[in-house]
C-alpha cells in the first residue's frame, strides 16, 4: 500500500498491461480465430518522454469525440500528405503541425482519421509494443515483413504476407513531407 504511488507512476509513465477490445485492428489484434481478447503491453515511455512517433506504430489514443481509449495505427505524421478513404470529404489532406493520421487495420470496422480527421499528437497515450496473451501470438509486435518463416506456406506465413501487403498499400497513399515532426 505504501508503494502504491511508485506502482501507479510506473504504469502511467513506463509500461502497463491492458485488454484490447474491438475489431478495428483485425487481423493484427483480436483476430477472428482467437477466442480470447488480446492482452498487450502499452509502452508510455517512448510516447510521453521520448516523443517517438513513427509511421506504422500501433498506438492507443483518446478518441477526439468521446474521449475513450482507442487503438489505431499511425499512417502519417506532420508535414505528410495522405490520400484519404471514404467517408472523409477531401481526397487528399495535408497534415498540419502537431497532427497525425491514424487508421485501423480493418477499414470497414474502424472509426479512424477517415471519420474524424487528423488527430493532435497530444491525444496519443501510448504505443503497443508486445502481445502477452493469447500465448499463441506471444511476442513483440513486429514491423510487417520482418518475421522469418522458413517454409513459405502455412497460416503464419500467409498472415505475414498479408500484413506486408496492407503495409505497402498504406504506404502508397502517403507522401512523406520534409517537415520533421
Amino acid at each position: 500500500m505504501v508503494w502504491l504511488p511508485t506502482g501507479v507512476a510506473f504504469t502511467q509513465y513506463f509500461y502497463s498491461l491492458r485488454l484490447v477490445s474491438g475489431r478495428s485492428m483485425q487481423p493484427t489484434l483480436n483476430p477472428d480465430d482467437s477466442v480470447w481478447r488480446d492482452i498487450v503491453v502499452f509502452d508510455h515511455f517512448s510516447i510521453n518522454w521520448l516523443q517517438q512517433y513513427e509511421r506504422g506504430d500501433i498506438v492507443a489514443l483518446r478518441s477526439p469525440h468521446e474521449g475513450k481509449l482507442i487503438v489505431k495505427r499511425i499512417v502519417a505524421l506532420p508535414g505528410d500528405t495522405v490520400k484519404t478513404l471514404p467517408p472523409y470529404p477531401d481526397a487528399e489532406v495535408y497534415l498540419p503541425e502537431g497532427h497525425a493520421w491514424v487508421e485501423g487495420d480493418e477499414p470497414f470496422k474502424s472509426e479512424d482519421s477517415n471519420y474524424f480527421g487528423p488527430v493532435p499528437l497530444g491525444l496519443i497515450d501510448s504505443k503497443l509494443s508486445a502481445i502477452v496473451w493469447p500465448p499463441a501470438r506471444f511476442g513483440p509486435i513486429l514491423e510487417p515483413g520482418t518475421g522469418k518463416h522458413r517454409p513459405q506456406s502455412g497460416p503464419a506465413w500467409r498472415r505475414e504476407r498479408d500484413s506486408l501487403e496492407r503495409d505497402k498499400r498504406r504506404q502508397s497513399r502517403v507522401t512523406i513531407g520534409s517537415q520533421v515532426p
Binding site: Q51, P96, E97, G98, H99, P120, L121, G122, I124
Partner: peptide, 8 residues
Amino acid sequence: YVSPLDPT
C-alpha cells in the same frame, strides 16, 4: 490543455 500543435 495540451497544445494541439506541440504535445509537450
